[in-house]
């Protein structure tokens, strides 16, 4: 599902929803977070479009891609939506005291450099408040590995939270954090200015991988070894 605002969108927010029921409380949660984020961005004069990636309908294709290495069209489309987003909201149910296998399976398919410096709100829903730390214990390290920028406030909704105004306040806090990060331009500056310093999959799905040579340092140690072991170009005579 995608909601497009009337104005020309200036920011794109991708939502990854690993909830499987219909209606899904995880989807309800990520919709709520997305709505508040758009509203808060709008107050700051930034219009935003939200594109939601529901994982349940492509669960089988995600599993096939894990085994065969070949993403289906829908899985590839989901990866490209993430790659082109300016920020993301990740929502997973908690199963067996952990993030859902479906969410992790999808995460295992994306390029390591797909989400570099993208602001992210991390969210989970669970049947008990006892699992509230799953977001910080499991989602946060995953997004740290992906070198995304998770906002300071993690969001978790246990059944009782749906009747609590505190949940709304926490959502607003996280949404504000995301909006500030986006408005600051820091995420783009980090990715643009530092791109060559991250490891990349050549010709991969990351949005800056469109011009693959831009990712390549032909003066790296390995590249010089490839060219017969030549010395650094700075050491070469003119």
């Amino acid at each position: 599902m995608s909601e497009t605002l009337d104005q020309e969108p200036m920011a794109t927010i991708a939502v990854v929803n690993a909830g499987v029921s219909d209606p899904s409380s995880t989807r309800l949660f990520t919709d709520r977070i997305a709505q508040r984020t758009v509203a808060i961005l709008s107050e700051a004069g930034i219009s935003a479009a939200v594109r939601t990636i529901d994982l349940a309908p492509i669960a089988v294709e995600i599993a096939q891609a894990l085994v065969s290495g070949v993403p289906s069209e829908k899985v590839q489309d989901a990866i490209e939506r993430l790659a082109s987003a300016d920020a993301l909201i990740a929502g997973t149910p908690v199963y067996k005291a952990g993030i859902s296998g479906l969410f992790k399976s999808f995460a295992d398919l994306i390029d390591d450099d797909l989400l570099i410096a993208k602001p992210a709100i991390l969210a989970a829903t669970g049947g008990s408040a006892r699992h509230a730390m799953v977001v910080d214990d499991q989602l946060r390290p995953l997004f740290a590995f992906l070198r995304a920028l998770p906002v300071p406030t993690s969001l978790y909704a246990a059944p009782e939270d749906w009747g609590s105004t505190d949940l709304g306040r926490r959502i607003d806090r996280a949404a504000t954090e995301l909006a500030v990060l986006l408005r600051s331009g820091a995420p783009r500056d980090i990715a643009d200015g530092n791109w060559a310093r991250y490891q990349h999959r050549f010709g991969g799905n990351a949005s800056r991988a469109g011009k693959p040579d831009a990712d390549l340092d032909f003066d790296s140690e390995l590249m010089r070894l490839a060219a017969g072991g030549r010395p650094r170009s700075t050491a070469e005579p003119d």
Partner: peptide, 30 residues
């Protein structure tokens, strides 16, 4: 998947072979 190997093939004027299977169409074109 390895640009350094493409670079080495190019440096020496050798051939470059992409095993064009088990991946989406034209995945190795870059």
């Amino acid at each position: 998947r390895t640009p350094e190997i493409a670079e080495q093939a190019a440096y020496y004027g050798n051939g470059f072979f992409a095993n064009h299977i088990l991946a989406p169409n034209f995945a190795f074109k870059p």
